[in-house]
Write a protein that binds this DNA or RNA. Structure first.
Lengths: 93, 93
DNA sequence: TTTATATACTTTGTAATACAAAGTACTTTG
DNA sequence: CAAAGTACTTTGTATTACAAAGTATATAAA
């Protein structure tokens, strides 16, 4: 039984977890909480968006660009399954 | 908090888990249980051995080569920590 | 008895990943 | 208005994860 390869990665699982408990988060908040470089976060977000696990909304805060990230239903379901898989793995060990 | 990159991989975590509950296992049994190709298993074993998570013993069964794999103390400890990390992650979610 | 097939692996090649560095497009500040 | 800052994305690269091909020996078939 293989774990979901999209979520079985330290940064992405934490990222998705944050989006589930927060409804929406800006790029900067994610970057700081996850302690990653801009480029690294950008590529993880692109990957999650491509898989439709999250949605990315580009807005403005005053005159500055602002990227708002939200969980998508597919991402929420995948995360729940992933947690169940982890639970089962732990129970077996 | 990042998960141990050696263990945070579907095949390797399952492999190490098998070694913890089995004391020792031959190459073939691992290959069949994990449902991987020879090459893939070989490289995962090499990686775990390089990290001293496992030990690999080359013996013979009759005239045929036989590779016996065992958990090493470092691997056992790392696995226990990894499980604790997973538990904590689950509790937070 | 050479030839083929099987066993038990390891090495090599390659596509995908994870990351930082560099780049883009502004905006603010000295 | 030049320099520095903000908010990202794109590019380059080292590392992975995997299967295909290779190595070495053993057994079976012709």
């Amino acid at each position: 039984m293989l774990f979901d390869p999209i979520l079985h990665q330290s940064i992405r699982s934490k990222l998705v977890s944050m989006l589930i408990s927060n409804k929406e988060l800006p790029f900067k908040a994610l970057k700081e909480a996850l302690d990653v470089t801009d480029g690294n976060l950008s590529s993880h977000l692109s990957k999650l968006e491509k898989e439709e696990y999250i949605s990315i909304e580009k807005t403005f805060e005053g005159k500055r660009p602002k990227t708002i990230v939200k969980i998508a239903s597919k991402g929420r379901e995948a995360f729940e399954s992933y947690i169940e898989d982890l639970k089962q793995f732990i129970e077996e060990n």
